[in-house]
């Protein structure tokens, strides 16, 4: 079994315009930087991107927005990106804003073979428009459907040739759930190691969910809100 690809260019073979993509990360933390750079390089258009956020104007998914490569975004919070807000308010960009927990669970459900589920989040708000409502234990819930993607792009700290992954700190966020929900999941890692080098007790994403893996390079790991205290 060998899932190793040489670089982002090879690992993204088969990604086409019009596809639905998942991209891990929270803000700029744990985003698949190499895959995003390659998507920009490929110049694909009409992409539907499922990602908690949309990057900032000049980094992360913001790069694809600048080039008008994205047709539709499915996100929970996009407040750090002026270009996004502009494209959304002008109607150039289709946007589906959904509660963060529902987004995570919809990805989890997609990867876990659960087509839909009921959640209280969003009941009584515009998020619930057109969705089935049911009461459980006297409380209103809305029906949310699972999300799946043609490709899921995730970023991990360490990974092995079998696709087992370990994430670092809060760079975990949406990556593990999205890794389960891609028809093809591509993992880019800071450190690619041989099977046996990762402790099986501490694997976050078991390799079965990952189809392609490559050693990433030149990580910028930009910090959005550098907040420190003085000694």
């Amino acid at each position: 079994m060998n899932k190793v690809y040489k670089n982002a260019k090879e690992a993204l073979a088969g990604v086409e315009s019009g596809m639905t993509l998942m991209l891990g990360g929270f803000g700029l933390c744990g985003i698949p930087e190499n895959c995003i750079a390659e998507l920009m390089e490929l110049g694909l258009t009409d992409l539907t991107c499922i990602s908690n956020n949309a990057g900032v104007d000049d980094f992360g998914l913001g790069l694809l927005l600048q080039k008008r490569q994205i047709k539709k975004m499915i996100s929970s919070y996009v407040g750090e990106n002026d270009e996004f807000e502009r494209q959304m308010l002008s109607g150039e960009l289709e946007v589906d804003l959904i509660p963060q927990g529902s987004l995570a669970e919809r990805c989890r459900a997609g990867g876990a073979g659960i087509p839909a589920f009921f959640t209280p989040a969003g009941y009584g708000t515009e998020v619930a428009e057109g969705k089935e409502v049911r009461f459980f234990n006297g409380k209103a819930h809305i029906l949310e459907h699972a999300l799946e993607a043609d490709f899921a792009f995730v970023k991990a700290w360490k990974g092995d040739r079998y696709g087992n992954l370990i994430y670092k700190g809060t760079a975990r966020n949406f990556n593990p759930v999205m890794a389960t929900a891609g028809k093809i999941t591509v993992a880019e890692v800071e450190e690619l190691v041989e099977p046996g080098e990762l402790d099986p007790y501490f694997i976050h994403t078991p390799g079965v969910f990952v189809q392609r893996i490559f050693q990433g390079s030149n990580y910028e790991k930009r910090i959005e809100q550098r907040t420190v205290r003085t000694k």
């Binding site: 996100s75 929970s76 919070y77 996009v78 407040g79 807000e85 959304m88 308010l89 946007v95 804003l97 509660p99 963060q100 927990g101 529902s102 959640t119 209280p120 989040a121 969003g122 009941y123 708000t125 998020v127």
Partner: peptide, 15 residues
Amino acid sequence: KMVKGMGGAMDLVAS
């Protein structure tokens, strides 16, 4: 005017 998204707020207040 302002469309930033609900983030986790809807999940938090619903539950």
